[in-house]
Write a protein that binds this DNA or RNA. Structure first.
Length: 213
DNA sequence: AGCACGATTAACT
DNA sequence: GTTAATCGTGCTC
């Protein structure tokens, strides 16, 4: 008997659209610990545990792109929950958001950091050989590591056939979730600038979770 | 048609 | 702590 090839790691099905059709802050908190998974052409996957997110909530949120009304750029935010809103900024960076709440309610959660879990060699190649710890610790960096660009805008994160999905990951102790003001809203007026809508698990939180400590 | 700025990052002092 | 890189977007003229 020749040794069998290692069995693929079994994956839970993607999180359902109903998960995203809830208040954006609830979705943001629930996304922490989930798995971001990108299927690759060679049948492997690039994956990481969502560690840091930000909520952007409706046209009234002056830190949210939706403040400008519905445009070609932010159109995805008005669409059905559970899809990707991917946009380009600073002349060089892509950002990945998950659309939340009911259709016609423009809101989304920005994925700001994930803990690399699988496909790390590929991430290194895509990220010019940064130290592993710095591969996915920023919203633009994780898009580079996962090769996410405009082609993913409007794509479903719930369809098992999608190249990019979000699936159940590790359970998170909600008391470990930290909240601060969102990053990079320097010119946004109060109170939106200071709304504590950035949520994250401290650097050691996920490790503690994984070791059961 | 032109322009100021951006949900950032890396590389500086 | 500061700043350049770099260009799509939305706003003004």
């Amino acid at each position: 008997m020749s040794p069998a090839a290692p069995a693929p790691i079994p994956l839970f099905p993607p999180v359902e659209p109903a998960f995203y059709n809830r208040p954006t802050l609830d979705v943001a908190a629930s996304l922490l610990g989930k798995l971001l998974i990108r299927a690759e052409p060679d049948d492997t996957c690039t994956a990481g545990i969502i560690q840091e997110v930000e909520a952007y909530i409706g046209q009234g949120d002056l830190g949210c792109h939706a403040r400008a009304g519905r445009t070609a750029r932010n159109d995805a935010m008005w669409g059905p929950p559970g899809r990707a809103y991917v946009y380009f900024t600073y002349g060089m960076h892509w950002m990945l958001n998950v659309v939340t709440e009911a259709e016609e309610m423009p809101a989304a959660v920005l994925l700001r950091a994930v803990l690399p879990l699988s496909g790390i060699e590929r991430m290194r190649a895509r990220c010019k050989h940064k130290p592993d710890r710095l591969l996915c610790d920023g919203p633009a960096k994780l898009c580079q590591a996962f090769a996410i660009d405009r082609s993913f805008n409007h794509s479903s994160l719930c369809d098992p056939a999608s190249l990019l999905t979000i699936r159940p990951g590790c359970s998170i102790d909600r008391t470990r979730i930290q909240r601060t003001a969102r990053i990079g809203l320097e010119n946004v007026p109060e109170p939106w600038k200071s709304m504590p809508w950035r949520l994250y698990i401290p650097a050691d939180g996920l490790l503690l979770e994984k070791t059961g400590k």
